[in-house]
Design a protein around this nucleic acid. Structure first.
Length: 342
DNA sequence: ACGCAGTTTCCTGATT
DNA sequence: GAATCAGGAAACTGCG
C-alpha cells in the first residue's frame, strides 16, 4: 500500500541519490493503490522509506537533507482530465506542493495535459531543499507519467491490494516513472555537502568509458559537465532517461491491435498483453510506411527492433509452457501502456 | 551542435 | 530449407 507521497518521495530520493530512482520506480510500478485523486495524503520521508523497501534513513546518504527536512510532505493530485476512450485509462496531472506546517499550501492549478512535465518550482518540493537545482541555471526536468484507472465497476482479482480505507468509490492505479535526473554538477553545486558517491552520475561513468575508448578506439571525447559549467552553458540535448516523443514500435503495435478492421495481428490474451503477428510481412510493411521507409522495412528488421524494445521494457518474454505459439508471439512489457481494454 | 532514445541495417548462428 | 529467433555491432534519425 503506497500513497501519493511515496511517489513524490521516490522522485525526491532519486534526486538525493540517483541510484535510488530504480528502486522507487520499481516499487511504485508494481501495483499501487493510491487514495482518490481529490484527497490529500501525507507521510514523512522516513515512513515512506520504511514502507517502500525497508530502507532506513542511512540509505539516503544525505543526512543533511534528512535533518533539515522534518516537515511532512504533502502531495495533492489534481482532477483527472483526459480519458483514453478505448482503454478507459485516465491520465492526470500531478501537482505537488510542500507544507511546512506554518502556512496553508497553495493548491495546484487545474490539470490540462495527459503527461505532465513538472517543470515549475512550485510543482516540486525539491526546490525547497535545493533552490539552485531548479533555479535560474536552467535545471533539469523530472517527468512523471501518472495513469489512473477506475476499478470500481470491475474489481481486480488481487484482493490483497484492497485499501483498508476504501470508502472512496474512485481507486487509482498508478504508474510512475522517474525519467530524468538533475545533472551531476548542478546537484554538486547546490548540495556540496553530499558525499561524492551519493551523486555519482551516469555522465561520470560515461566519462570513464570514453577516456578508455579514446585510447582504444580514438573516439572523440565527450565534454564533461564541469566543462559546460565553466563555459557558462548547460549540457545540451536530451538527458539520460528522458523518453523521446517519436511514434514508437510498441505504440504502433498497440494501435494496430485496437483497429478492428485489420487482420494482420491479433490478441492471444488481451488481459495479459500477449499478441501474435499473423502476417509478418504486412505488419513490417505498415511499420515501414509509418516511418517513411517504404519497402525497405522487413519483418527481420522489425523483430530486431522489437527485441531491443523488449530489453528496454516495452515488451517482455511470453510465458513458457502456457500454450502460446513459439513464433511470432510477443507480450507488452511494463513500460508500455494503453493496450488493455477495460 | 550535441547527445540521447529508439530504432535501422547488417550480420552470424541457433532453433522451429 | 525457409522462416523465425537471438543478439552483437555500428550507423542513422528525430528531438530537446
Amino acid at each position: 500500500m503506497f500513497y501519493r507521497s511515496d511517489l513524490f518521495n521516490g522522485i525526491m530520493a532519486s534526486t538525493v541519490f540517483p541510484s535510488l530512482a530504480d528502486v522507487f520506480t520499481e516499487a511504485i510500478l508494481t501495483e499501487d493503490i493510491f487514495q482518490s485523486l481529490d484527497q490529500v495524503s501525507s507521510r514523512t520521508m522516513s515512513e515512506t522509506m520504511e514502507a517502500v523497501k525497508g530502507l532506513n534513513e542511512n540509505d539516503f546518504l544525505n543526512q543533511h537533507v534528512l535533518s533539515e527536512e522534518k516537515a511532512e510532505v504533502i502531495i495533492a493530485g489534481t482532477v483527472a482530465s483526459d480519458i483514453d476512450f478505448w482503454t478507459g485509462n485516465i491520465f492526470s496531472k500531478i501537482s505537488c506542493f510542500h507544507d511546512n506546517g506554518n502556512e496553508s499550501p497553495h493548491l495546484p492549478a487545474s490539470a490540462d495535459s495527459s503527461i505532465q512535465e513538472l517543470t515549475q518550482p512550485d510543482d516540486l518540493m525539491i526546490p525547497l531543499m535545493w533552490p539552485n537545482v531548479y533555479g535560474d541555471q536552467g535545471g533539469e526536468t523530472l517527468v512523471v507519467e501518472h495513469e489512473s484507472r477506475d476499478f470500481s465497476s470491475e474489481p481486480e482479482n488481487d484482493s490483497s491490494c484492497g485499501g483498508s480505507d476504501g470508502s472512496s468509490p474512485m481507486i487509482s492505479y498508478s504508474k510512475v516513472e522517474v525519467k530524468t535526473e538533475p545533472g551531476l554538477d548542478e546537484q554538486r553545486q547546490a548540495a556540496p555537502y553530499l558525499p561524492v558517491q551519493a551523486i555519482l552520475s551516469p555522465y561520470e561513468e560515461e566519462e570513464l568509458e570514453d577516456s578508455y575508448d579514446a585510447v582504444i578506439r580514438h573516439k572523440k571525447r565527450r565534454k564533461s559537465d564541469a566543462e559546460y559549467i565553466a563555459d557558462g552553458r548547460k549540457r545540451p540535448g536530451r538527458k539520460k532517461g528522458q523518453t523521446s516523443s517519436v511514434y514508437h514500435l510498441w505504440e504502433f503495435i498497440r494501435d494496430l491491435l485496437h483497429d478492428p478492421k485489420q487482420r494482420i495481428i491479433k490478441w492471444e490474451n488481451e488481459q495479459e498483453g500477449i499478441f501474435r503477428v499473423v502476417k509478418s510481412s504486412e505488419v513490417a510493411k505498415q511499420w515501414g510506411n509509418m516511418k517513411k521507409n517504404r519497402e525497405k522495412m522487413t519483418y527481420e528488421k522489425l523483430s530486431r527492433s522489437l527485441r531491443y524494445s523488449r530489453k528496454e521494457g516495452y515488451f517482455e518474454d511470453v510465458p513458457k509452457d502456457e500454450g502460446y505459439p513459439k513464433k511470432l508471439c510477443f507480450k507488452f512489457g511494463p513500460k508500455s501502456h494503453g493496450w488493455k481494454r477495460l
